[in-house]
Design a protein around this nucleic acid. Sequence first.
DNA 1: GCAAATTAATGATTTATTCAAG
DNA 2: CTTGAATAAATCATTAATTTGC
Lengths: 204, 204
Amino acid sequence: MSSVASSRWCPTSEQLMILEEMYRSGIRTPNASQIQKITANLSFYGKIEGKNVFYWFQNHKARDRQKLRRKVSRQLQLQQQQQLHYYYQMNQSNDRFPAGYYESPSSSALQQLFFFDSSVSFLPQGGVTGASTQAMNHTWKVDMIPQRAESTMTTYGYDGNATVLEMGPISNCCTRPLQTLELFPVTATNLKEECSATSKQYCL
Amino acid sequence: MSSVASSRWCPTSEQLMILEEMYRSGIRTPNASQIQKITANLSFYGKIEGKNVFYWFQNHKARDRQKLRRKVSRQLQLQQQQQLHYYYQMNQSNDRFPAGYYESPSSSALQQLFFFDSSVSFLPQGGVTGASTQAMNHTWKVDMIPQRAESTMTTYGYDGNATVLEMGPISNCCTRPLQTLELFPVTATNLKEECSATSKQYCL
DNA sequence: GCAAATTAATGATTTATTCAAG
DNA sequence: CTTGAATAAATCATTAATTTGC
């Protein structure tokens, strides 16, 4: 261990602690001068270069996202399984889905699954049940505010606030009976690799 | 100003991730009760209303289609071009760049872009670590290109935001005097205010 | 206990996307 | 439409944990 130079940076515990604290405080993608300063400061605790700091933030951020995604997708899948169960129970014999309810089998479908059981209509009035999007539009048109993003909406724009995520609410919602379609990975993917939602495909 | 509530919904990263996961899993046009439930669940992660969910799905679906259309037409266009310039393409495809034109840059160089500033040398000058990659030797010594200007700060990510970073505690635990990083709030001038409810930005 | 063998983490690179100048 | 800047995603590679057989 002593004389053999490691081929890669091995952060000391102090360095790591400080980096993590910075990350927690919101730093995600430090710019050049920030990296420079961080490096200078951390070098007090051991050998370190700018690129180490750069890579550390890149990796930490990415893996944070990955972890979160995995969590989310696990939850979703769990919901789906529960829904599937329900589906089998409830839809075995007759009436599948309300005919003409959805524009295309797919879009409607499975989704209804989430959150069904509507005892509460959050729409002020309007017979929303039909759930035609148009209907909703009306009820809201008062102050429709387009979503942010404008073209920026790319897949992952969320950089900051990486606070711990508790999935509580979602799991709550899956305790209720839902109408559902089967929703499972069609391709063999699923296995290799954590979710990586990008490659997963569902059919409904 | 930070205290002024944004006029429009700013999804948190958790909310976005969950919405995207739902979208990926097939949800396209949730009905009223679904929206209501989604909203209820997402509200755990931040302020959100039913209309936000509704619009999000509308927009996301639309942009998805748009993207797909563009892609398809691009593809078609490309095919046609290939037909026209078949041989030409064949010959060029492999080496887009003159071989050996740049040994260092490559994609990796991209990132190196930063650090630099002659005064602080972070490059493995001493052959530290024996050059894990030849590219590094070249790239790291180059002068940098400042990363995204802080004023421009771009599309994604509210990068450094959030809570105040306390360096004190850390230095205490490390037994050594820590030269603290200067981390202070930067004035609101450059706040692009990507939502990020906690719109404070710190720089060091 | 203690190394060899396995597996999990994580540093470092490469490849793909995205956005927006030009 | 092309291209450059910036970064996220995917991947490679090495180190640290851990398991396992003795």
